[in-house]
Nucleic acid binder design. Structure first.
Lengths: 185, 185
DNA sequence: CGCGTAATTGAAAAGTATCAACACTGGTGG
DNA sequence: CCACCAGTGTTGATACTTTTCAATTACGCG
């Protein structure tokens, strides 16, 4: 449930360490800070180096829906850049986070000069589509208890503690329903 | 709700007509035929030239969830190729469909030699992610009546008639619930 | 016409949301 | 040191929504 992308992480670690491309910056975010704001224009992409983030959409009715949790090596902000649209989601640091940052112009330059990276990005996007599609179809089609059991299994593998509200938002249900289902099982 | 991708369509139309790349085939599918089978290995990507397809996941409990309807210029089967996994969904022809087809090896060759195409594919994937994310969060967070009203508005723009079952599967609800909600409004 | 598929509807059961009250925790300031 | 507060978590009662099951009607086509 916390996605990582070792391939991308390695790539940007090298890029940064070897200084083969001088436009990669490193930036830090404390717990609770936003990396990306919904409905704002984004001019940078981030590659998470350490830490965990939460990507969520805030709907007009006040409820949040968590798209996914992103960890090491995951890329953020690329959708906005490629589709030339405003951000459709927020990204917030759940732990302290460090991330590589590149602005739009230089990211395109990097893609233009490094053929390898094109395929790596394509794979990253394809994986995002696949994971998201699988998760959303399962959540839509199965009852809460079933989804929660699966989620609890996934969580037990992680070191981080998720708040109950985040779990509810991830499942697309209310906190009350989450607690009831937890009680039953 | 029926996604199209003019950029990709133009690209492959040219490729086919100008014969600049000889490994693009054209294939036809009649209504109800499968372009892609869930849990099967796929070795080709398709670009829809004409017609409309339905991409849906069949869950073990028998229910279907419709990921999306794809029309002209949309690419199919690319996720399986890029992530090197079995198909996670079915794709079926809702109308008669014609599509360009390229096998994995030649698709990679094409990507390798045509830099333009890399960015076009990246944009296509990014758009898929964005559209899917926006739709699923709205469906999870809003009540049925709200979602149905939005959907009906989208449908009215299309020439094709969707079955009630498909609409229900698209919304992730039962046919009975769809009918009740339709009655009310 | 007759058959199969799609669409409609009712009634009861199951699942979720809403509202509201209360418990626990870790600060912060008097 | 304690009172207070804000954030998080828990629980009950009730209303509402959706599913399940089942029966019936409408429609297209050989």
């Amino acid at each position: 449930m916390i996605r990582i992308n070792k391939e991308l992480l390695d790539y940007f670690n090298d890029l940064y360490v070897l200084q083969t491309f001088n436009f990669v910056e490193k930036e830090s975010f404390s717990v609770g800070n936003f990396l990306i704001h919904q409905n704002k224009k984004g001019n940078d992409i981030f590659i998470i180096k350490t830490g965990i983030t939460k990507c969520f959409v805030n709907e007009e009715n006040g409820r949040d829906f968590i798209q996914e949790f992103f960890g090491e090596g995951e890329i953020l902000g690329e959708i906005e850049i490629f589709t030339e649209t405003l951000s459709f989601s927020n990204v917030i640091a759940l732990t302290d986070v460090t991330a590589y940052k590149i602005d739009k112009k230089n990211f395109y330059k990097l893609l233009d000069t490094n053929k390898d990276l094109n395929l790596i990005i394509i794979r990253a996007l394809a994986t995002k589509i696949r994971d998201t599609a699988i998760r959303t179809s399962q959540q839509q089609v199965h009852p809460l208890d079933y989804n929660l059991k699966r989620l609890l299994r996934l969580i037990s593998d992680q070191k981080i503690n998720f708040s109950k509200q985040d779990l509810a938002d991830y499942l697309g249900i209310t906190l009350r329903s989450l607690n009831r289902s937890l009680k039953k099982s």
